[in-house]
Write a protein that binds this DNA or RNA. Structure first.
Lengths: 169, 169
DNA sequence: AATTCACAGGACAATTTGTATAGTGATCTA
DNA sequence: TAGATCACTATACAAATTGTCCTGTGAATT
């Protein structure tokens, strides 16, 4: 028997209405609860309840402002694979986190390596950032590659759209 | 009374007040214009104008709902480096975009390769997704690694915070 | 010196939100 | 099978917020 669960059966974390709501908000995030209810053809209370539950379940974590770093002057995005000294991940991550231009770090399988996404204002600036990373203690090797384009920008949409296809009985 | 005085160089896409506003919204994205103006100690019209200008300049692109894929059942995140046949990038990207689990694709320097971020429900599911990718025409080689943890989740904060420090050098 | 800008501060109507309450059908439970 | 729940519709109302428009004041630009 699995661990704790309030209603382990039927309930998938997100049903079709939830998905529709999330898709609607994806397209027009500033919509209010009332407007959402109108668009979805349900009562306002329902939308309110759904939203609350999505937040409760941790599915919807918020509505952070999407800032275009390019428009802010950081026109370059680069990825780096970082090889580090065994057992020093925490320290290295701390060092990386201290670098403003480091926008994301993942620990990945492979050889206990880290994967880093960073931005820079120019090639020269990227050089500086890379040097900064290399200077982080316990960083052994750094392999950088620059993003030339982003054919598929970060998205969740398809996953949400697929929920629609679920047996709405 | 202390008024603003550093707007002479309209070159900077984001000034300190803009950054503060974005940071505030980063922390509490559902705040309304009025509440923002109170927190920042400026007039409501100012906040409204700033927000409009940020959108105009393309810095603020919206407030998309942040969906936690983990909470939705996609507990696995993986990255893949994809080697493709010369000159087939567009086709391959199209094929990748058609896979729901593919959440992001970048074309990178290196060897005209692609970098892919994807999610899956389980290891078995990941296998399926990977197979799917390999099946995309013109995909030559695929090197996958799983994200074990995310020491630094996607962030913009440090870059915004730095704006506060006035024209650096 | 004149003009333009960004911002503070205020005013007003229309809309939205926060919160309740009642009614209905479907599902779960003892 | 008779309750008890649960999710949703439909309403209601006060309080708060939004969309606009205006005035006045410094500071920067011309």
């Amino acid at each position: 028997m699995p661990s704790d669960q309030q209603s382990e059966h039927s309930d998938q974390p997100v049903d079709e209405l939830d998905a529709k709501l999330l898709l609607l908000l994806t397209d027009e995030p500033r919509l209010g609860v009332l407007e959402c209810s109108r668009r979805l053809g349900v009562a306002r209370g329902t939308v309110q309840a759904r939203l609350d539950r999505l937040v409760e379940r941790g599915v919807l974590t918020g509505f952070p402002p999407a800032v275009d770093l390019g428009a802010m002057g950081y026109g370059l995005t680069a990825f780096a694979t970082v090889e580090i000294a065994q057992g020093r991940r925490a320290e290295v991550c701390e060092g990386l986190a201290a670098i403003s231009e480091v926008c994301e770090v993942h620990a990945t399988t492979g050889q206990g390596d880290l994967f880093v996404r960073m931005v820079a204002r120019s090639n020269a600036d990227l050089q500086r950032v890379v040097d900064h990373i290399v200077d982080v203690p316990h960083v052994r090797r750094l392999s950088t590659s620059i993003a030339l384009s982003t054919p598929v920008p970060p998205r969740v949409r398809p996953l949400l759209e697929r929920v629609k296809g679920r047996p709405p009985k």
